[in-house]
Design a protein around this nucleic acid. Structure first.
Length: 652
RNA sequence: GCUGCUGUAGCUCAGUGGUAGAGCGCACCCUUGGUAAGGGUGAGGUCGAGAGUUCAAUUCUCUUCAGCAGCACCA
């Protein structure tokens, strides 16, 4: 006999070998029906798994959070069966859960297209309806490899071959179909239910490596029921409305065109946001002891070779021949020789900042030196990587490099983390993920140097009290980095702020200072950006605020709308006063009804609307309607303007 | 860069092997209306680009460019 402890502390005795399903049935008939899986000593398992020793258990039903994980994973299996039924010869590879859903990667000579999804989904519903039981089996390793190899499932065979020797080879059957799987699964396929939908197909490299074959990935989402599914799909649609590319066009902020792929054409309204944000961060930096500089855009390769960019980063750079182009029609623009002496558009500011540091002799008393630049950088990004403002080829970072001693690393890093917090707080971002990215394969500098750098950042993060995760292989080639990630409307995570510790570049570019001992020493370099790039950060802000930017950033802060043309003069007077108070205001004297004007400016996301008619003109007041509110307040003009001007102040 | 999808008016989108339509926007006219679309008239398109098939291509085929989703890469 064994003793089984339930979540409420109750202990029940059973024969060894009892299963979760038996226990559920013993507790109540309805529980047996509702149970999907079981926690055995904290381990989520199949209900069919025999329990042989005393254990703490807890049954999982559809109401629990885990249910979604189970439904999604089972759904992936159902999809794989459907695909292999409809498209014989397709190999299955891996099919994990992801946030809100699942995917499965298939290998097939002809990739799937979106048109196939409907048929696959239909077949899936048939499979679910049929409701086969999931049966768990443990196979002999070699037999499993032989089985899958024999079946032509080369990817599965490879997966098994790569599993650790200690790992059981588990197979789950659902009717005639089976798959290698870690499990657990629900009792039957039926329990997947109907709340699923296939969403998209995409290519994905086998094992995430672009040297490998490209597989077809099918994404799906699955929920407890149709209602939850529908809610999710609606939420997706809502999120898409906040897409900064869509809003940018609707609000006339910026555009892109193919002649300057990946670079932004900022329109007057968009550039207001840009300038406001830049002004804000500039004030913050200045008061945090940074000095602003400006360095060249186009720099000779010699410097990029010396810095290591030419060796490690070249494929991301734009190169320019340093030769006067031929003016002759029909002649080559530049000679063959031109390619022997190239220049490059800077992809980063750091080497140039070292040049500024290197002018003259620096004393340890000068350190730390914090050089900031709103440097315009160009990166030759892969075409498929470009994404609105989030991923561009020409970008401006709120960049700075701190030159300091090793002893100053921690205090400088802590100060930077505090700055990031302050700024993100000002701008309304609380949900920020912090990552410590460790040495990549393609790196400059010795392992000892990297040990020191990684530990330096780790220590600084701990001192700042920030929670962070570590990611292997994600660092920059010259040093490890702290990344501050923020999510966009769709839930994609983007790196914004960054702090990178660099012992390599000062060495390569010969930076030094005179220490208290009178000898030359290498400064340490901290590369850091708070917003990251202005482009990306503005994109994130637009999505985060759904275009309804805080007053200080709104391109047009106030529109004055007279009710009829009789009050145009008074409206003009209001406009002048608003402008005099520093408010970005416009007037709408078009021959339209007030309803129409209200609608139009609301849709345009203008934060404040001053409506003026007979009563207002008479009393020198304005009827204020704020964005998002249906109410109006009538206030004396001067008071209204004073209040608005006060509210429109930048956070710093 | 790789895989799939898309490309028609300023915007959102219909549509067809016989050179095109709607709504919104825009211009003009009527309307002067108190808080989310008043009415009328009109202008506006090499149907992304190039080649091929065809008597005829915006429509079919190929190539190419760009956009979108994902992968890889990354701020």
């Amino acid at each position: 006999m064994i003793e089984v402890t339930l979540p409420d502390g109750a202990v029940r005795s059973y024969e060894a070998g009892i299963t979760g399903m038996d226990i559920a049935a013993d507790i109540s008939k309805s529980l047996a029906k509702a149970a999907l899986a079981i926690y055995i000593n904290g381990q989520l398992s199949d209900l069919s798994l025999p329990i042989n020793d005393n254990a703490e258990i807890s049954l999982v039903t559809r109401k629990d959070d885990e249910a979604l994980e189970l439904i999604r994973h089972d759904c992936a299996h159902v999809m794989a069966e459907a695909v292999q039924t409809l498209f014989p010869g397709t190999q299955v590879t891996i099919g994990p859960n992801i946030e809100n859903g699942f995917f499965y990667d298939f290998a097939r000579n002809e990739p799937f297209s979106t048109e196939d999804l409907e048929a696959i989904e239909k077949e899936m519903r048939r499979i679910v309806e049929r409701g086969a039981e999931f049966k768990r089996e443990v196979w002999d390793r070699d037999e499993a490899i032989a089985y899958f190899t024999n079946k032509g499932e080369m990817y599965k065979a490879e997966l098994i071959r790569d599993l650790p020797e200690t790992e059981e080879i588990k197979i789950y059957r659902q009717g005639d179909w089976l798959d290698l799987c870690r499990g657990p699964h629900m009792p039957t396929v039926k329990q997947v239910g109907t709340g699923f939908k296939l969403l998209k197909v995409a290519g994905a490299y086998w094992r995430g490596n672009s040297d490998n074959a490209m597989l077809t990935r099918i994404y799906g989402t699955a929920w407890r029921d149709d209602k939850e599914l529908k809610a999710y799909l609606t939420q997706l649609e809502e999120a898409e409305k906040r897409d900064h590319r869509k809003l940018g066009q609707e609000m006339d902020l910026y555009h892109f065109q193919k002649e300057a792929q990946g670079s932004v054409f900022w329109h007057p309204k968009g550039f207001v946001i840009y300038n406001q944000l830049e002004g804000y961060i500039r004030r913050r930096l200045k008061d945090h002891g940074y000095q602003e500089i400006k360095t060249p855009q186009l720099i000779d390769n010699k410097l990029w070779e010396a810095s290591g960019h030419w060796g490690k980063y070249r494929e991301n750079m734009f190169v320019v021949p340093d030769e006067i182009p031929s003016g002759e029609e029909g002649q080559p623009v530049v000679s063959e020789k031109a390619f022997e002496k190239l220049m490059a558009l800077k992809p980063m500011n750091c080497p140039a900042h070292v040049q500024v540091f290197n002018q003259g002799i620096k004393s340890y008393k000068d350190l730390p030196i914090r050089l900031a630049e709103f440097g315009c950088c160009h990166r030759n990004e892969a075409h498929g990587a470009l994404h609105g403002l989030m991923r561009v080829r020409q970008m401006t970072q709120d960049d700075a490099h701190i030159f300091c001693t090793e002893e100053q690393i921690t205090s400088e890093s802590v100060a930077f983390c505090a700055l990031v917090r302050q700024v993100y707080d000002d701008l309304g971002f609380e949900d920020v993920r912090v990552v410590l990215a460790l040495r990549p394969e393609n790196k400059a500098g010795s392992d000892e140097t990297w040990d020191k750098a990684e530990e330096g950042l780790r220590e600084a993060l701990r001192a700042s009290g920030l929670e962070f995760e570590e990611e292997e292989g994600e660092g920059a080639f010259y040093g490890p980095k702290v990344e501050f990630h923020i999510r966009d409307a769709i839930g994609r995570s983007w790196q914004c702020g960054t702090l990178q510790l660099d012992f390599v570049l000062p060495e390569r570019l010969g930076a030094s200072y005179i220490g208290a001992d009178g000898d030359r020493h290498r400064p340490v370099m901290l590369h850091r950006a708070v917003l990251g790039t202005l482009e990306r950060f503005i994109g994130i802000m637009i999505e985060s605020y759904a275009g309804k930017l805080p007053l200080w950033l709104a391109p047009v802060q106030c529109v004055v709308a007279p009710i009829t043309s009789d009050f145009d003069d008074y409206a003009q007077e209001v406009l002048e006063k608003l402008k005099a108070a520093g408010i970005r205001a416009e007037i709408d004297t078009r021959n339209e009804k007030i309803n129409y004007k209200v609608r139009e400016h609301s849709v345009a996301k203008v934060p404040a609307l001053f409506v003026v008619g007979a009563r207002e003109a008479e009393n020198k007041t304005v009827a204020i309607r704020r964005l998002g509110s249906k109410n109006q307040n009538v206030d004396p003009l001067d008071e209204a303007i004073k209040a608005l001007a006060q509210e429109a102040k930048a956070p710093y």
